[in-house]
Design a protein around this nucleic acid. Structure first.
Lengths: 348, 348
DNA sequence: ACTAACAGAACAAGCGCTTGCGCATAACAC
DNA sequence: GTGTTATGCGCAAGCGCTTGTTCTGTTAGT
């Protein structure tokens, strides 16, 4: 049982086919211990002697052994995989948001020992998620965006898989992470109102987007707070085509608005372009603010006032909350992230 | 062995805990057959009677049974998972490219029964890939971008995992998918040269980007083709900060260039902005073209000539090639995708 | 010196699926 | 009728790991 025999065993190991990966059996055999000992040495769980633990770990390090994740998953009934569901969109604002967010998720997932599936979905088709769930490939999911009466959220609830959403949802059972869209837009509007502008137009995108809903509510709240009446003729929240939006910009000018608040930078981009075409100067003739600070407007001649949300950070937080949830920790029902109002020339 | 007993068995099944997922054992037991029969019924491989196959399939359908993917992976030594490696970037052009590309990959992966991991990497750190590979979680990988002497490609080669790259690589062993950047930029340049412009500036981004290399080569080739000398004072290909780029735009104007070809829309965006500041009119004073048609320049007052590449399509193709490779089919060493030169007002 | 307690390691039964092999029974030839 | 081939299915050994239980040898307690 001395050094000699051990050497001999290790010798044997080096004879193995070079391409083949080592298994826990190979390690156990080479070391003359049982597989359970090797397993415990690695996991650190269970009773194991300090000396053998060292010996096993050294051998593993030396011989570049890595436990097979699949076998581990099967034995433990947990995969250490999560998935994030993102929409198959093309928009100039949505794409960067989801990409950065996904990178944030990946960052903390990696750091905490998880790998990340991404499934991009178009429309309301849940079939892409089904395999992942039915085949037990993930421990939990992040729903990257939410809609009113969200199909995906309903689906995930039905499956009983742990998940969190990025974006709010009218559902007490669902763990949600979101920016404070309402608060941010309230503050922004309040600042504009405090600067003598009272006829502030709101240019939304869709009533079905909960984020638009939240921002619009903030806009209303700010008006209520100072007792200024909102002129509903300056509010546009239907599902808007670019053409429709451009025509509404003209309406807004005709109706003598002081300011325009845009629901996001995509909308703002078009608004700014139409204002240029109409010959309206910013900020001399009209003030413009956007509700999302992306890079989209960076090279616009006039710097644009907007709300700053950290897109990567929301991904990090969402992932962190999900992993806490998976690991049995208590998590808040809602996590609301901070924002910043960035005042620039467009509202001078 | 009659109907009666079978009914009884199925009865028993319905007593099981409702939350628990069915296993192949449950199915076999309920049906009074062996698990191997169930397995063969599902896979369609091996010898199995038509009648039993039907019976098993019907039961499975009825009771919403789904084979456990993890167990399957372990038994078959293949996961039906792939991964795509994307850089952890923030750029206004790169982000949409990788997002759309990723969606393309996901699309065909899903269609062919695979799930997609995404790992975003910063710098040259391969550690994020290692777990995925070492733990046998994927069958193959797509490297989303390539650099000169690519660390990731080298790493993947070392690991012996099947992979393909999006972007070219000077390596005969690696399966590559790319747009025809050189051809596209050659065509674009040729068109400009044919329109009496002879002093065409080239604004690159980095010599380390193979894509810049290819486009620049096309630019040179077009000049050679018609025997026009390139003025190297109009070529800028160093790693450029925004400030440096803006100053080079002034140089370009001073040196009397006819045209500027930008390596991508990010560069172009800045170039256009600086031209505006300098008071140069487009296309009256100078012509501008970009080598990548993203949405970034969509709302620029003057529509911009550029090359159109299909970002989603390259993802689809890359995935398709990878899966062919994994499934043992013969795949081409290089797959070059088509492009389109889109002429707009900026080069009128 | 004898037992109780315990640490360290091996045993073995899974996790849920695949698949080579072999055993029946059925179908065919002569 | 026997011998041969085909067909449908069950058996059981894996895939590589985890983990509750058991066994063995020390150590401590009296």
């Amino acid at each position: 049982m001395g050094q000699g025999e051990q050497m001999l065993e290790e010798e044997k190991r080096s004879e193995r086919a070079p391409g083949k990966k080592l298994t826990i059996n190979d390690v156990a055999e080479a070391l003359g211990v049982s597989v359970s000992t090797v397993s415990r040495a690695i996991s650190g769980k269970g009773r194991i002697g300090e000396a053998t633990r060292r010996r096993v770990l050294a051998f593993i390090e030396e011989n570049d052994y890595h436990p097979n994740g699949i076998a581990k998953s099967l034995a433990q009934s947990r995969t250490n995989n999560i998935a994030i569901i993102v929409p198959d969109v093309k928009g100039i604002v949505a794409v960067p948001f989801f990409y950065l967010c996904m990178c944030g998720v990946n960052e903390v997932a990696q750091a905490r020992g998880y790998d990340m599936f991404v499934v991009s979905t178009s429309g309301k088709d849940t079939s892409h998620l089904e395999r992942l769930i039915n085949e037990n490939k993930v421990d939990g999911m992040i729903l990257g965006s939410t809609y009113k009466d969200d199909v995906f959220a309903a689906f995930l609830k039905g499956k009983g898989l742990p998940f969190v959403t990025i974006g709010e949802l009218n559902d007490e059972d669902v763990v949600q992470i979101d920016h404070d869209n309402e608060g941010a837009c309230r503050d922004l509007t309040a600042i504009l109102l405090s600067r003598r502008w009272k006829r502030i137009a709101y240019m939304g995108a869709s009533k079905n987007l909960l984020v638009d809903e939240a921002r619009y509510n903030g806009y209303l709240q700010a008006h209520r707070d100072v007792g200024v009446q909102v002129d509903k003729n300056l509010v546009f929240r239907e599902e808007l085509s670019e053409t429709a939006m451009r025509s509404h910009v003209k309406d807004i000018l005709d109706r003598g608005a002081d300011c325009i608040i845009c629901q996001d930078d995509g909308v703002c981009n078009i608004v700014l372009d139409e204002l240029r075409i109409q010959g309206a100067r910013i900020p001399e003739d009209i003030r413009v603010a956007s509700c999302h600070n992306s890079k989209v407007l960076d090279n616009y001649p006039v710097s644009v006032t907007s709300l700053r949300f950290d897109n990567t950070e929301i991904g990090r937080v969402a992932c962190s909350v999900l992993l806490d949830l998976l690991e049995g920790k208590e998590v808040p029902h809602k996590t609301i992230l901070d924002y910043e109002v960035v005042l620039k020339e467009s509202t001078k």
